[in-house]
Design a protein around this nucleic acid. Structure first.
Length: 227
DNA sequence: GAACATGGTGTCATTACATCA
DNA sequence: AGTGATGTAATGACACCATGT
């Protein structure tokens, strides 16, 4: 697995996981989530009418209007069910394929024109195309979240292993130190030797003791370049 | 230029239906 | 045939932005 591409991803995920109050399942009111509405999420990350549809949108008022119009004039949509029933049409393979293709090129239908054209080509209502894109974006995001989750799990494991290894190393060094002859211990006071954690060089100057820089272990860095 | 209304588009949570094991 | 799980189309609420008045 290539972890290189996760740099942005990880950051974004961390931001998401930050303790912002996210979901209130009981309260349907929207939480203040500034910026979440805009497409700022890194692709890491891992949103969807005829004459009546011209100018359609998800704005409550306009959507209601749109639906009202559809209900009064949209009988032709019900090739498989009741007029106002919740009959859900299943998109054909061809329709889905075409939508997928469009989605590859742009995940949003920026101008109305695109939506209208797609709807015409697919013999769907623009609203349906719009909804499809919304759901598709949601699916993409969900998938990406799963990927991020896996990545973080791997990170966690690697860090745990590294932590274990370092603890072991410390233990060994302690044992070594105890087993050293007394005269050697006196000759080389431990305080005078410091190892740079980045370059692993011994610094033996007692007057200017090595002050370690904050050191963060990067499990995926090929080599540490801190020094 | 500020305030407001309106329209368009997005996300999010949820519902409801279709399909499959 | 009945059923639970899963996938997904559709809905509703709300936020933000652009534009017109």
């Amino acid at each position: 697995m290539d972890f290189q591409g996760f740099a942005d991803t990880k950051l974004a995920l961390e931001l998401r996981l930050s303790p912002t109050p996210s979901i209130n399942p009981t309260n349907h009111t929207k939480k203040p989530n500034p910026g979440s509405d805009r497409p700022h999420e890194p692709s890491l990350t891992l949103a969807l009418s005829g004459d009546s549809c011209v100018g359609s949108s998800l704005s409550s008022a306009s959507v209601k209007r749109e639906r009202a119009v559809e209900n009064t004039s949209g009988e032709e949509e019900d090739e498989d069910g009741g007029v106002n029933g919740k009959k859900k049409l299943r998109l054909t393979k061809a329709q889905s394929g075409l939508l997928e293709e469009a989605f590859k090129h742009h995940t949003s239908l920026n101008p109305q024109k695109q939506k209208q054209e797609l709807a015409r080509d697919l013999k769907l209502r623009p609203r349906q195309v719009e909804v499809w894109f919304q759901n598709r974006r949601a699916r993409t995001k969900l998938k990406q979240t799963e990927v991020d989750c896996e990545y973080l799990k791997k990170c966690r494991k690697i860090l745990a292993d590294e932590n274990k290894r370092l603890r072991q190393e410390i233990q060994e060094l302690k044992v070594q130190k105890v087993s050293q002859p007394k005269y050697m211990q006196q000759q080389l006071p431990a305080a005078t030797l410091t190892m740079c954690p980045s370059c692993e060089q011994i610094i033996g100057d007692t007057k200017t003791p090595f002050t370690p820089k904050p050191y963060f272990f990067n499990p995926f860095a090929s080599s540490s370049a801190a020094c």
